[in-house]
Design a protein around this nucleic acid. Sequence first.
DNA 1: TTATCTAGACCGGTTCTCCA
DNA 2: TGGAGAACCGGTCTAGATAA
Length: 433
Amino acid sequence: MPSVLKLNVAFTAPHATTAIRLPALFTENGLLISHLRFLYSKRNKSQSWIERNTFAIQLLLKFIDAHQHSDMSATELLQSFVDALNFGTLDSQQIDELNLYWFPRRVADVNTLLSHINLYCDYIDGVYGHELPNLNPLRRATKAEERIRWCAYYKRQANCFLNHLNHPSPNKFSMSRRVQAPSAHVLSVESVSRFPDEHFERFLQYGFTNQAGKFDLCSILIVMLMHYGGLRLSECFHIYTHDVAIDNKTGAALISVFHPSDGASPSPDFTNRRDFLNLQFHLKPRNEYPRSHRLYAGWKGSLLTARNLSFNVMIFPHIKAIEFTELLRDYLTSRINGDHPFLFTNSKGQPESKKNFIKKYQKAIERIGLVSNKHQGTSPHSHRHSYGYRLATSGFNQLEIQKAMHHKNPDSCLVYIKPQDDEIREKARVLGL
DNA sequence: TTATCTAGACCGGTTCTCCA
DNA sequence: TGGAGAACCGGTCTAGATAA
């Protein structure tokens, strides 16, 4: 049985009226209540953040538990924890006496985990104060709460976890430099992240067919929104059927993407989309479901350009907006409708899940003989890269690309228009340099 | 630097299709 | 009709990428 178990529990804080679901850590001595209270204090953070924090504390508790019978000092033990994260726990013979079997982690990952532990330790300090804990020393402490209080104490005294985020005094520096996390390397990996243009039409035509040989129009439309509209995958799952209109003059589809909760309701009877989903369908905005929920779809805070808290999808090239309309008509007449407002549905009429789309997307990639891999540009996000690059190579300037991709910061689009090594080599060759 | 979203691996349950 | 295999769908976990 593992020394630390994670279970999702319904937690009701004192004086609160409703319970919220949070991950709780259980050791052989019971629930680590201080961590649950810490998570409650951070309940406005994302699901990803809460998961990552819980995972970091879980690793720390497991490591301390594995060293119960060690004669290391507390500082050495915590230093050893940082080393175990960095270099793993297997020796050169691939043997792990601690029975943890951790593999080496990337520097950035280690820093993230240590940052989470640091935050929790700060919270413990705030609750118990800065005095020396009147407890068994760390090595002899048996209760997880006691161990965490000692970790918070040593973190403050010896900066054991995150020296690089604080500013140690000179007399502490010599020790803390031995135990700090390493600096991350500055790295720009050359990778092909745009969808290969030469395969895209074939991908749409032959990738998405079901068992009966019919087109999976739902998936095709989602891919078109990403490839020709530059949408992130998650944004597609927030679109309602009401959010699509047709330009009567050109026949082009006009698509708006609204903020999932605060965006204007399609009906004036409701305050906003949260109100609409709740009262009309007993649903929540999809970014507010837990990450493990089938309806979950993230929201990355795109730049909203309309007062109704939405932005318009800029389909490029324009001819594709007309093709989108034609496919959309076929889709809407053939889809199974369900009790929800979402545009994209699965084979049962329920809102299409991101997870299911990704499975079908990968299958489609394999059908045309490619491998689904983001480094080869065959992941859903690669279409957003293709969109940004297409705008850049068609002569749009940085500000125009920023607006089309709905970035708040003009520099954010640079990653999408970054040239690849072979393109620079080719340019140099053409120039004869 | 920090917070958040995406990708991918692995697993399991259910439903569908084919065939003996 | 029942078994085998494929397809579909969902859950969990971790690492990497992106954006502010």
